[in-house]
């Protein structure tokens, strides 16, 4: 059962990662909120990356400084990384056994 759920989730995430272009219409705030949520998810899976939280912070700083374009690029980057780390966690949970020598 767990395996089935994992696969479905994995598939959905793969789609989400590919449908990423769809996030271009989002505001920086919305992007950052989504990135923070995905990063929290990655953390709870044990798969947080070192670079995601700093990217979110830098985007917030750029936004506060009025650099809208830079803030948006950084927020998109952070969201991409956050979602990729969640994908990694879901995917690895299913596939690591192939590396165990027998």
């Amino acid at each position: 059962m767990k395996a089935i759920k994992g696969l479905v989730v994995t598939g959905a995430l793969a789609l989400a990662a590919m449908a990423h272009a769809g996030s271009h219409g989002m505001s920086v705030d919305a992007l950052l909120e989504k990135a923070a949520a995905a990063n929290a998810n990655a953390k709870s899976l044990g798969y947080e990356w070192t670079i995601t939280a700093p990217a979110i912070k830098n985007a917030q700083k750029a936004l506060a400084a009025g650099n809208a374009d830079e803030a948006k690029a950084l927020a998109e980057q952070a969201l991409f990384w956050a979602e990729a780390s969640v994908f990694q966690g879901e995917n690895e949970g299913q596939s690591w056994e192939m590396r165990v020598p027998r």
Partner: peptide
């Protein structure tokens, strides 16, 4: 999309 990517590249690289 391509412009966005190029922009990001320019910003981050």
């Amino acid at each position: 999309m391509i412009m966005k990517a190029a922009l990001a590249a320019a910003l981050l690289a």
